[in-house]
Simulated assay, not measured.
Amino acid sequence: MRVIIIGSKGFIGQNLVKYFQEKNYDVWKADVVVDYADVDRYFLIDASTSDFNTVFHYQKYDLCINCSGAASVPDSLNNPMRDYYLNSVNVFKILSAINQFQPECKFINLGSAAVYGNPEELPITELAKRSPLSPYGFHKLQAEQICEEFYSFFKLQTCSLRIFSVYGAGLQKQLFWDLNKKTKTGEPIILYGTGEESRDFIHVSDLAKATELVAQSDFFKADVVNVANGEEVKIKDAVAIFFNNYPNNINYSFSGDSRKGDPLNWKADIQRLASLGYTASIKMVDGLKDYYDWVRRE
């Protein structure tokens, strides 16, 4: 199978490239990052125009995985137009190019559980009400609607993954990256929230495996699939697991103040993903030990 991974230089993109190459897929890459060393099967996208026609005009693919886009709730509040173009408009441009040059190519868009906002009940099924709390969440929802549009009117095979809280070595943002940075300041560590907030964490290697399972499925009728482990982990417990890797005791507290755009509690219903044979292979204690080893090297 020939696969094109758009956003191949990002955290998830790099991990998908590695995973699919190790599985002996014919992997092609595309991103806005100039890399003179990586010229083999790599398309440099002009960030000013985001023209994807060249990507699909000269090569045929069985599958396109879109990992590109913005991935920051706070930044989407500060720069909503930028977030809109990266998470919504570019999806439309990619699907337009696929429709024009090779409409038989399957398309997986890496979306977000941010489309749910604060759910009315747990676990969250794919049929749950969608109530985004940020421009980021709205734009990820729009991307899903664009996938549905191209399936409904042009019969393109599309699928959207609603990814929950992904982590792993190489991720230079979000909770565990911020925790490590705070240990270096010498200042008291004060965290947002109460610690009772929860997330459904998934290691990036398990995300890659889940993506492959979806790619091999028939979930391409504008389907949506939750990608998580179906486990609710309180933030205070996740922090304790991570800090337990440090040789010295880390003192920290929670401010009680919530951050705009952040949901309170998440736990995914992963029956659709599990029906494809998915089971988690990385326990959180092991995944965070690996992440700790990586940040210490960095």
Rank of each mutant, 00 (worst) to 15 (best):
L44G: 09
K260D: 06
V285R: 15
F20A: 10
Q14C: 11
P80C: 08
V17W: 00
Q172N: 15
F176D: 05
I146L: 05
G168F: 01
G111T: 00
G186K: 07
F20E: 05
S68W: 07
K221I: 00
Q157V: 01
F43G: 08
S88F: 03
I190E: 13
L77S: 09
K60Q: 13
N15T: 01
V285I: 15
E120G: 10
K9A: 10
N226M: 01
I124L: 03
I241S: 03
F43D: 11
I94V: 15
I163E: 06
L273F: 07
F153E: 04
F150A: 01
L171Q: 15
M1D: 07
S253P: 01
I65M: 07
N244Y: 11
E196L: 13
R41P: 00
S258Y: 12
D62Y: 05
S96R: 10
F150D: 00
Q14W: 00
P188W: 13
K234N: 02
D257V: 12
E197V: 02
A215C: 03
R41N: 07
D46V: 09
K60G: 04
Y84P: 00
G261D: 09
V295L: 14
W294C: 02
K129Q: 12
Q100T: 15
C159F: 04
E231H: 12
G170H: 09
G117K: 13
S205G: 06
Y167I: 14
W28A: 12
F176E: 08
P135K: 14
P188L: 08
A240T: 06
G193E: 06
I189P: 05
S50K: 13
Y19W: 07
A215G: 08
D293P: 00
L86Y: 09
V227C: 10
S134P: 06
Y58T: 12
D31P: 05
R296F: 03
E22K: 14
V204D: 09
K209S: 05
V3G: 03
L133G: 09
Y292K: 15
N244G: 10
L156Q: 01
D206T: 02
R259A: 06
Q174K: 14
Q21D: 06
D46Q: 10
C147S: 10
K18S: 11
N90V: 11
Y58N: 15
L175E: 08
P119E: 04
S112Q: 05
R2M: 01
K289S: 11
N249M: 07
E197T: 09
A37W: 10
K184T: 02
N248S: 13
L213M: 12
Q172D: 14
E212P: 01
A113L: 02
F150P: 00
Y278V: 00
K129W: 02
R2S: 15
L16D: 07
W28E: 05
L288V: 08
Q157L: 11
K283Q: 14
S217R: 04
S76K: 12
S217Y: 07
S8Q: 06
R259S: 10
F164M: 11
T194V: 04
N244E: 11
F101Y: 14
F242M: 03
K184Y: 02
I12N: 02
D269K: 11
V55E: 04
V225I: 11
F107H: 00
V73E: 06
V89N: 13
P123K: 11
V204F: 03
Y25C: 07
L288S: 10
S68Y: 03
